[in-house]
Write a protein that binds this DNA or RNA. Structure first.
Length: 582
RNA sequence: GCGCCUAUAGCUCAACCGGAUAGAGCAACGGCCUUCUAAGCCGUAGGUUGCAGGUUCGAGUCCUGCUGGGCGCGCCA
């Protein structure tokens, strides 16, 4: 993991700059209109510059006249006229904006000058792989916890979604100047682990899941057989920097448990590695017990007066913090319920100094949010109420042969992340799982993804990149390689409609990244890349690059290189490769 | 019953703190390879944004109610 250090000032980024510039100009115009008593003196409108959806509406637009009309006591278009005439009186505005028009119910549309638009080419060139990155996070620490699968089975497609979304979140946060720690938390000692051990033991004894002596809630998947076989053969597995050698003793349940956990952790790590996802910290639930952190949290909660004894159990009054019912902390058997170590774990995060934490989880664990936050509030440690943040992804439905494949570890029937990577490919799998809003349920049709592997959406974007790389190669082979100096002098030659579209898209990228990071929505990047790739393909088909006329050729090659760079940067945010040829 | 998510084209999904004529891909139909990669491009068709109200100059977006789907509601994790 590389912490992104951006030294370049991005204040000059044209779209961001232009918005700030026009906001300021509009503020002055409003002040003038107040002075003329057109607008009431106490009126403080929120000035909003929006990207236009339709290029017929220019590059930027403001709804200022619409929101201010009522206060001004005049119709929006008339007010817009007054605002525009104020702006037109400013020479700076004349320089930056070629045209202003009043449209629709009263929008003011701004058309940026050609020079302002083509400036993006030099900016992309200068920033290179960091174009679109920013220092919004100002180097602050943020921890992202994701996947956090328990080592009771292979990673399935749901974990894959968590891995894809979580990893993209990390990339987005890094790109916007946050110092990101990626963390994987797992339970290595609870009841489910005991179940795992019993299941492996049963397999080691040669039992089948339908046998009378099979453990009640045992894991029936075939992988349990593999673990049992490896255990009996005395294999050594390395996971999380620890080597575990199988005792090969069927009666030693503790040894079986340690081996099984290590074996499955190793499998998960191999899957994640194949998925190009890695972590900085692996956090074991057992360490919270070993270091007394669970007990300390319980004591603290008791001291703070939010607990009570009832029915032989210790309860936390989570209803004090918005929960719909109180929750048991310590069971009648003396053990703690799962959320107590969860609270201890999050207190641990807080004490490690993470003032910002994002937890990426499956929505089926939604109920933990209130409990964890309640527990943290009850500690009275001055932890903010909305801490930590959560990104929940909805369920993934897997379709195979037109039928839904039920995901059940215990039934042993599920599609593993590894299956998907092998069948669909890492790039396409990542793209499929990250390209949709996490809040939406996702149908992953394996047959479709596999049979359509030739025209998967991700290839459309990669192909745009490869095509531009190919143009570059062709240019070099023919001795027509891009001359940056020459190109800079002839950027005004980029007059084709398709070129304006691509330029416009390139100026939007930094905002897309910033918004996707702020909203914690990686799919916005995927959406943008699709748009940019479409713009590139259309341009490619409409305009030849390697034309005889050198000025035009250099200008186009310069734009092509900028587009290639942005495609590459965007794909990198998704963890998808940007091939130079396909 | 309660909580969270969700409902947009035949299918899978977008729609940037509420903005202008709701957009893509797949599927369907019709065109474009002697020219930088046809994994591409151009065009046609496809919609009462689940239903009913409300707020607003303006609602797919916000509020209320209803309906359908998913997930959760344990002294499991």
């Amino acid at each position: 993991m590389v912490s992104v250090q951006t030294t370049q000032s991005f204040f000059s980024l044209i779209r961001v700059y232009m918005k700030a510039f026009l906001t300021e100009q509009l503020q002055q115009a409003v002040a003038q209109l107040k002075h003329q008593a057109v607008l009431p003196a106490d009126f403080e409108p929120v000035i909003l510059l929006e990207n236009t959806r339709d290029k017929a509406h220019g590059d930027l637009a403001t709804n200022l006249a619409l929101v201010s009309a009522k206060k001004a006591g005049m119709n929006p278009r008339a007010l817009a006229e007054k605002l525009v005439s104020q702006l037109q009186a400013q020479p700076e505005v004349q320089q930056q904006v070629t045209q202003m028009e009043i449209a629709g119910p009263g929008f003011i549309n701004f058309f940026m000058s050609a020079g302002a638009l083509t400036a993006v080419i030099a900016q992309v060139r200068a920033a290179g792989s960091r174009y679109g990155h920013s220092q919004i996070g100002a180097g602050q620490a943020v921890q992202v916890e994701f996947v956090s699968a328990n080592p009771t089975g292979p990673l399935h497609v749901g974990h894959g979604r968590g891995a894809a979304v979580g990893d993209c979140l990390c990339r987005l946060l890094q790109a916007t100047g946050w110092s990101v720690t990626r963390e994987f938390y797992y339970n290595d000692a609870g009841a489910q682990i005991q179940n795992l051990a019993l299941s492996v033991q049963a397999r080691a004894q040669g039992l089948e899941p339908d046998h009378a002596a099979w453990p009640a809630d045992g894991y029936k998947g075939d992988y349990i057989k593999d673990v049992a076989a490896a255990y009996l053969q005395g294999e050594t597995v390395v996971a999380d920097d620890q080597a575990v050698t199988a005792a090969a003793d069927v009666d030693d349940l503790d040894a079986i448990r340690r081996f099984a956990v290590a074996w499955l952790r190793r499998e998960q790590d191999l899957d994640l590695k194949a998925f190009k996802v890695d972590f900085d910290v692996y956090f074991l639930e057992s360490s919270l017990y070993q270091e007394g952190q669970v007990e300390a949290v319980v004591q603290r909660l008791i001291e703070q007066g939010h607990t009570y004894e009832q029915d032989g159990a210790l309860w936390l009054r989570t209803t004090d913090f918005g929960d719909d019912k109180d929750r048991v902390m310590r069971k009648t058997d003396g053990g703690y319920t799962y959320f107590v170590p969860d609270v201890a774990y999050h207190l641990n995060k807080w004490k490690r100094g993470f003032q910002r934490v994002v937890n990426e989880q499956g929505a089926d664990h939604h109920s933990t949010i209130t409990r964890v936050r309640s527990g943290l509030q009850a500690l009275n440690e001055q932890i903010p109420q909305g801490w930590p943040e959560y990104v929940l992804h909805q369920m993934v439905t897997v379709m195979r042969s037109g039928e839904e494949v039920k995901i059940s570890k215990r039934a042993g029937s599920y599609v593993t992340l590894r299956d998907l990577i092998d069948e669909v490919g890492c790039d396409a799998t990542r793209y499929f799982l990250a390209a949709r809003a996490a809040s939406s349920q996702l149908t992953f049709d394996i047959d479709l993804a596999r049979t359509q592997s030739q025209d998967n959406p991700v290839y459309y974007i990669q192909y745009a990149h490869a095509r531009l790389c190919s143009v570059q190669r062709q240019a070099e082979e023919k001795g027509l390689a891009l001359d940056v100096q020459a190109a800079q002098q002839h950027l005004t030659r980029l007059t084709a409609e398709q070129e304006q579209t691509v330029l416009n898209l390139l100026t939007r990228f930094p905002e897309v990244v910033a918004v996707a990071a702020r909203e914690l929505e990686p799919h916005q990047v995927a959406q943008y890349l699709r748009d940019l790739a479409a713009g590139v393909h259309t341009w490619y088909n409409a305009c030849p690059f390697l034309v005889e006329e050198a000025p035009l050729r250099h200008a186009r090659l310069a734009l092509a290189d900028a587009a290639r760079q942005v495609l590459s940067n965007g794909l990198d945010l998704l963890g998808v490769s940007a091939p130079e040829s396909m």
